[in-house]
């Protein structure tokens, strides 16, 4: 038992990606002046190429705010976000984003929804030209033949898979996910976690995911950032030394359990768990 755990750990160490820094955030703060509320203070984050970073923390600690700043949707009060060496000053093509709700446009087919970012950025002709890529992406998430289906005919999990394709279609350097599967049922959610891992590994993607579920954070993450509230800070960075790809069996190992317990204790100390 101890031996196999050791092997697991060593394998984990070997597979630890150690790529270049894709995102560098140093001493970032955000104050909402209208409410005089400091949502984030002194946040440092480094995301390396090909890694998956999970973020967990009490509700209202500023996770979504951090993600929006990284996406260039709102400005930071202090500090900056460097993406591939360039400061993020607004929305960018190389940033992919996804929310808790699929936010598909109901009047567009699945494929048209996937191609929306291209149509908005480069026009309808460019979107038309990218339809093969769109179809490939739908195939990749297991939605073969669903290109002409409208969102109301899709299940919640299927709709989120279309949203994944829409996020991937512009070939972003980083994926920002805000509780992407939080609205799905337990089984679908687990399945989507496997899907997400497969897609991220397959594309060597750099991902940053906010979640409320501790096992999900550990299962997907190379690192779990535990945040504290008021003001939002990174309280601890938990390294997850489990080999890739993560499997269902791994979730029953003592290592996994102890990591989950560790994160839970930290959150407990931070007053996140009532």
């Amino acid at each position: 038992m101890a031996e196999s755990a050791d092997a697991l750990l060593r394998a984990g160490q070997q597979s630890r990606p150690n790529g270049d820094e894709v995102v560098t955030i140093s001493n970032l703060s955000k104050t909402f002046h209208k409410r005089g509320l400091t949502a984030l203070e002194g946040v440092d984050v480094t995301l390396r190429h090909g890694t998956f970073t999970s973020v967990i923390g009490p509700s209202g600690c500023g996770k979504s705010t951090l993600l929006k700043i990284m996406a260039g949707l709102i400005p930071a009060t202090m500090g900056e976000v460097l993406l591939n060496g360039q400061p993020v000053t607004g929305p960018r093509k190389d940033i992919g984003i996804m929310f808790q709700q699929p936010t598909l446009l109901p009047w567009r087919t699945a494929l048209e929804n996937v191609l929306l970012p291209i149509e908005i950025r480069s026009g309808a002709a460019a979107a038309e030209g990218a339809s093969d890529r769109g179809r490939e992406l739908l195939d990749l998430v297991g939605l073969e033949g669903f290109d002409h289906v409208h969102p109301f005919e899709l299940s919640g999990g299927m709709a989120q898979r279309v949203a994944i394709c829409r996020m991937l279609v512009t070939g972003p350097a980083i994926l920002l996910l805000d509780e992407p599967f939080g609205a799905l049922d337990e089984l679908t959610r687990e399945y989507m976690n496997f899907e997400l891992q497969r897609i991220c590994l397959g594309r060597d993607a750099t991902s940053f995911m906010v979640t409320h579920a501790i096992p999900e954070a550990v299962f997907l993450g190379d690192e779990v950032l535990v945040m504290s509230a008021r003001p939002g800070r990174i309280a601890e960075i938990v390294d997850v030394d489990l080999p890739r790809p993560r499997t269902l069996d791994m979730m029953t190992t003592p290592e996994f359990a102890s990591l989950v317990r560790h994160v839970r204790h930290r959150l407990d100390e931070l007053g996140a768990i009532a």
Binding site: P91, R92, I95, Q101, R121
Partner: peptide
């Protein structure tokens, strides 16, 4: 969220 999505697509 949809508005934010459109914003992120510039």
């Amino acid at each position: 969220d949809a508005l934010m999505l459109f914003e992120s697509m510039e």
